[in-house]
Design a protein around this nucleic acid. Structure first.
Lengths: 200, 200
DNA sequence: ATTGTAGGCCAACAAGCGTTGACATGACCA
DNA sequence: TGGTCATGTCAACGCTTGTTGGCCTACAAT
C-alpha cells in the first residue's frame, strides 16, 4: 500500500536477513532475539518494535514461495529431474528453506507453515498431472518426503554421503524417484514393483 | 559389570522412558529436565544425580540399535520392501527414533548420533550388497534420505498425506525406491533414467 | 541401638530468555 | 525556531532454565 520507502526499511531487511540466518543454523528455540539483533547490529527492542514478537518474526522470515516452475511446459519424462533440480537450487540459494526445515522439527507454528507450503504448492503440481485428486495428494506427499529427506540429510544433518555428493549426482539419483511418485500408477496392496504376490 | 539389581534401577528406567517421550514430542531444547522429572514422578535433582547433565541424559536415552535384519537371508528382489517395513515398524514401536530425529534437527550432539547410527548401520547393509565401498556409502546415504524423509513427514511434521497412509501403502510406494538405491547401477552424469549420454 | 549409606526431596543459585516502557536523538515540516 | 513523529538506545522486569548443595528418611550391617 505505502510505496514511499521509509528509512526503517533497511533495518527491517537487516533483521529479516539475520533472522533467517539464525533460524537456519540454530532452529527456532536456540535462535535468540538477542543474537539476531546482534547480527543485525541493532538493539533487541527494535525487533519487538517492528515484528511484535519472536513468533511473528519467524512468520515474516519464513514467508516462502517455492516458485515451482510451470510443469505444463516440461516434457513429461523430465518432470522428476526438473523438480529435483529446482529444489536443490532453491535450497542452496538462501537460508530461508533451511530455516523453515530446521525450525519445523521442534516448533509447531513452523511445522504448520511447512505443511501448508509443501502441501499446497506441490499438490498443485500433482493435481495438474493426475485428475484423481485423492491420489494426487498422496503423490505430492511422497515427493515431499523424498525432497525433505534429501534436504534434511544434506543441509541440516550434513550426513557425509549426501553432503559430499555433487548437485548433479543428487539430481541423477533422486529424479527417477520423484518421476515415479508423480507419474507411476499406484502400487498393488503390498507387492513391490515386480510381481511378488503375497497374501494379506 | 555389576549385576546385583539396585533399588534405583527402576527410577533410572522411569527417567529414561520419560526422557524418550519428551525428547520425541518436544525435541532437545524444549524437553526440560523439570518436565521429564515430573513425568517420571521424581525430583529434577535425581536426573542430575543419575545422569550428570541434560546432554548425558540424551545420550543415554538415544542409545539405539536399528536392529536391521540380516539381509543375506533376504531374496535380493525383496530387499527394499524388507528394509522399509522394518523401519516403519521400528519407528512406530517406541518413541526412541523419533526422539533422535526431532532432536537432531537442532542439537549438534543429537545430529552426531544420528549420523553415526544411520551411517554405520545402513552402510553395513549396503556394503554387503555392493563391493564398491565408495559407492556403497552413497547408496546408504540415499536410503537414509528416503527413510528419514518419510519419518520426518509422517511422524514429526504429521504431513497429512503421509500420516494418513496405511503402513502397507507407505511400504508399497517406498520399497522400489530403496530397492533401486541399493541395487541399481549408478546413473550417468546428469541425465535421468534414459540414456542421455554427455561428455565431461 | 548405633552407625553408614543409598535414595530422594527441597530451596536456591546464576544465567539466559522474551518482552516492556521510559528516555534520547535525529529528521522534517510548520 | 519550535514541534512532531519516526528511529533507536538503555535498563530492567518476570520467568524459566540447568545445575548445585544441604537435609531428610529408610534400611541394612555392625
Amino acid at each position: 500500500m505505502n510505496d514511499t520507502p521509509r528509512r526503517s526499511d533497511a533495518t527491517k531487511a537487516a533483521i529479516l536477513a539475520a533472522a533467517r540466518g539464525r533460524f537456519a543454523s540454530d532452529g527456532y528455540e536456540r535462535a535468540t532475539i538477542r543474537a539476531i539483533a546482534a547480527d543485525a547490529a541493532i538493539d533487541p527492542a527494535m525487533v519487538m518494535r517492528y515484528f511484535g514478537s519472536k513468533e511473528k518474526l519467524f512468520v515474516a522470515a519464513a514467508e516462502i514461495d517455492l516458485r515451482i516452475p510451470d510443469v505444463s511446459a516440461v516434457p513429461r519424462r523430465a518432470l522428476g529431474e526438473t523438480l529435483v533440480r529446482h529444489f536443490v537450487d532453491r535450497w542452496e540459494g538462501d537460508g530461508t528453506l533451511n530455516a523453515l526445515l530446521r525450525s519445523a522439527a521442534t516448533n509447531e507454528a513452523a511445522a504448520d507453515r511447512a505443511r501448508s507450503i509443501f502441501g499446497e504448492q506441490i499438490v498443485t503440481v500433482a493435481e495438474s498431472l493426475d485428475p484423481d485428486r485423492r491420489l494426487a495428494v498422496r503423490r505430492a506427499g511422497l515427493v515431499a518426503s523424498q525432497i525433505l529427506g534429501m534436504a534434511l540429510c544434506r543441509y541440516v544433518l550434513r550426513f557425509p554421503p549426501l553432503a559430499a555428493m555433487s548437485k548433479d549426482e543428487v539430481i541423477a539419483w533422486l529424479a527417477p524417484t520423484v518421476q515415479r511418485y508423480l507419474t507411476a500408477k499406484p502400487p498393488q496392496r503390498s507387492g513391490a514393483g515386480k510381481p511378488v504376490r503375497r497374501r494379506r
